[in-house]
């Protein structure tokens, strides 16, 4: 499964980083960086990615 970021919509609230620090982080400029984009279906990483998508307050992340 692939994590995608709608970059213009992302405002850097950072809740996704708290939900899935192993997959993404805010860089020094407050821009979101996806460290891992592909996650195996059913894996703990996919669960973390799904949690990150869930908490994004502006719906800028997708997992498909």
């Amino acid at each position: 499964m692939k994590i995608t970021l709608d970059r213009p919509r992302c405002e850097g609230h950072g809740l996704c980083e708290e939900a899935a620090p192993e997959l993404m982080h805010l860089d020094d400029d407050g821009e979101l960086v996806l460290d891992i984009v592909e996650v195996p279906e059913g894996s703990p990483q996919a669960a973390a990615a799904s949690a990150a998508v869930r908490v994004c307050p502006v719906a800028a992340l997708k997992l498909a």
């Binding site: 869930r54 908490v55 307050p57």
Partner: peptide, 16 residues
């Protein structure tokens, strides 16, 4: 973290 008080999505509270 997923509470609704800031709304959600494109119109999610801009000042949150």
């Amino acid at each position: 973290v997923d509470h609704l008080s800031f709304g959600y999505g494109p119109h999610g509270c801009a000042g949150q």
